[in-house]
Nucleic acid binder design. Sequence first.
DNA 1: ATAATAGTTGACTAAATGGTCTATTTGCTA
DNA 2: TAGCAAATAGACCATTTAGTCAACTATTAT
Lengths: 204, 204
Amino acid sequence: MGRVSNSKETLMSAVLELIWQGSYGATTIDQICDKAKVKKGSFYYFFDSKCDLAAAALEANWQARKPELDAIFSPTIPPLERLRLFCDHGYKKQAAIKCQCGCVAGCPLFALGSEICNQEEKLHTKIKEILSHYHTYIESAIRDAHAAGIIHAPDPASKARMLFAYSEGLMTQARIVNDAEVLREMAEGMMGILGAKNATVKAA
Amino acid sequence: MGRVSNSKETLMSAVLELIWQGSYGATTIDQICDKAKVKKGSFYYFFDSKCDLAAAALEANWQARKPELDAIFSPTIPPLERLRLFCDHGYKKQAAIKCQCGCVAGCPLFALGSEICNQEEKLHTKIKEILSHYHTYIESAIRDAHAAGIIHAPDPASKARMLFAYSEGLMTQARIVNDAEVLREMAEGMMGILGAKNATVKAA
DNA sequence: ATAATAGTTGACTAAATGGTCTATTTGCTA
DNA sequence: TAGCAAATAGACCATTTAGTCAACTATTAT
């Protein structure tokens, strides 16, 4: 019973967009409210603080994207193909964002995590939690590829850390130079790191 | 003639420390002044804004570190050894910072660049400029290694982009999880990416 | 010594910002 | 349709923040 509203969701979308485009620190509560077309009173009705909102927004965003990632990393897809899909998916998303709002966001979690570590404990914890999921996807693909004899990776965790660092590094690079094209070589780069024979290297 | 002062330098050191420990956005001019024990009037006597100060501080910091890097990447050192030195140097520095102030800073340029892109054009430009120097060091080492027949890297620029993304990704990761130990595998990881036979892999 | 110069000080302003509070509105349910 | 719960509005306050300014102080070259 009582009134219904989508302000909570609107606020979560707004804060994410503002952070992707600018930064957490430079985003004010007033800006968020303006963008979401929600008054401050409502903001504080739903959330305790910017940190609280951001953490909730990341969680919701993660929940929304999870099915997509589950599909990409489905065991029914050949392991290296999963990684390639993941990279292509990342490239396309960044390119789309660039078209839409003029800037490459990079990996929001990494950018945000790097910015607010040593501040905002709650947000920081949430970010590490979600990032670890990505790590898990990658590691699983590597393990399967090794088991299938496609690559030699007796220590999948270690290789996963490498791919993870590489992909996040490239993503951040893309954000800094504001150019999604640097992501085009991610799939090839991953295959190189895994020592995979460049099967089906996509044409430019 | 006139009075002498080191306030300019003190301010530059202060802003860097504050940014490494926290973030650019969360750092206020008052904080910087407090830390540097300089009054606001003096701040504005030397600098126009926080952005201005930060850009000057990065440039000064780069100039101070350049000799060190020139030594590490000296052509008199075997190319892959240069990269290994670079990694070890990075690890040691981060570990030292962690001991000193309780947090791993990661690559300040990458963290800051990722935070302030699409804002603070002047700072952004300076960061990209300095980052490109690092890239140049790495590429040169790879080219030399290829010429020496130690590795196969017909496209040194491409390999340099990979190593760069990997190392920066690891650095950022170290910052996020606040643990310098993840950097220990950087040298080994680089050698793996380059397809170098793990000559002289340092013992843990 | 002294004048010109380089640097310092701290009080001040205006604007931005985070956060609160109460009255009001809306819609669900019984 | 009455009544209750959920949500909204927006005025309001206290702080923090960036930035200014004019008076003051130390240094040094002549």
